[in-house]
Amino acid sequence: RRKSKRKPPPKKKMTGTLETQFTCPFCNHEKSCDVKMDRARNTGVISCTVCLEEFQTPITYLSEPVDVYSDWIDACE
């Protein structure tokens, strides 16, 4: 008699959501930077609500707010 092989359980999909508020690289306030994605103009704007620092970068249809933040961090270095 042959043993029946069980199929492995399906893999769980990533359910965690990406951050939309970030720590400002200038004033170091946590969750003080908000990202606005202007898909019509293909630009992402991130601004700090505390020190009013602002950064704008081009985006694509695949871009997420975390991509705008990482572009800002890269531009600071």
Rank of each mutant, 00 (worst) to 15 (best):
A40K: 15
D38H: 08
I46F: 03
C27V: 00
D38L: 04
L62I: 08
M37F: 02
S4Q: 05
N42V: 06
V68M: 05
E64P: 03
E19P: 05
K11Y: 03
R39L: 08
R2S: 10
G16W: 05
V45G: 09
L52Q: 12
R2I: 01
Q56F: 04
N28I: 01
D67T: 10
F22D: 03
V45L: 06
E77D: 12
F55M: 13
C24R: 01
Q21V: 13
G44A: 06
N42T: 04
P10N: 04
P58D: 08
N42A: 13
K36W: 05
Q21D: 14
P25S: 00
K11Q: 08
R6Y: 05
D71T: 10
D71E: 14
E30R: 08
E30F: 04
T17H: 09
T15H: 07
V35E: 04
I73Q: 05
M14R: 14
F26D: 06
R2V: 12
R41E: 10
P58G: 11
K7F: 03
K3P: 03
I73F: 08
E53V: 06
I59S: 02
L18K: 12
P58E: 06
C76R: 14
A75I: 03
T20M: 14
M14F: 04
M14Q: 08
C48R: 00
T43Y: 03
G16P: 11
R2C: 01
E53S: 05
W72F: 03
V66P: 08
E30T: 11
L62M: 12
Y69C: 04
V68R: 00
M14L: 08
R1N: 07
W72L: 04
K12S: 12
G44P: 00
K7D: 04
W72Q: 02
C27M: 00
P8K: 01
T23C: 13
V45R: 09
C51K: 00
S70C: 05
A40Q: 07
E30D: 11
K36A: 15
C48D: 03
R1D: 15
I46L: 04
G44N: 03
D38I: 06
A40W: 04
F26Y: 08
D71V: 14
N28S: 15
R39E: 09
K36Q: 04
E64Y: 05
M37D: 03
S70G: 12
C33H: 00
Q56C: 10
T60M: 04
C33A: 10
S32D: 03
C24I: 00
C48E: 01
N28Q: 05
D74H: 12
M14C: 06
R6S: 14
S32R: 10
R41W: 04
L62K: 13
M37H: 00
Q56M: 07
S4T: 13
F22K: 10
R39W: 07
T20D: 11
D71P: 02
E30K: 11
S63F: 04
T49G: 11
C24T: 01
D38G: 02
E53G: 07
T15P: 07
D74K: 10
D34K: 14
P9S: 14
I59G: 03
S63W: 04
V50L: 14
E30A: 08
F22C: 01
R2N: 15
T57H: 15
Y69A: 06
S47E: 15
C24F: 00
E19S: 12
C51A: 00
D34P: 14
L52V: 08
T23L: 12
S4V: 10
E64F: 05
S32C: 13
S63E: 08
V35A: 07
I73N: 08
Y69V: 11
V66C: 09
R41H: 09
T43F: 12
L52E: 10
N42D: 12
S47L: 10
K13W: 01
R1Y: 03
V35R: 01
C27S: 01
Q21G: 10
P10M: 10
V45S: 09
D34A: 10
L62C: 07
P8M: 09
T17D: 14
S63D: 05
T43W: 05
R1Q: 00
E19G: 04
I59Q: 03
V66D: 05
N42K: 05
K3C: 01
F22I: 02
W72C: 06
M37P: 01
V68W: 01
N42Y: 02
L52P: 09
I59T: 11
N28W: 04
V66R: 10
C24L: 01
M14N: 05
T57M: 10
C48W: 00
R6C: 03
V45P: 01
D71N: 06
E19D: 04
M37V: 03
I73C: 09
K12R: 05
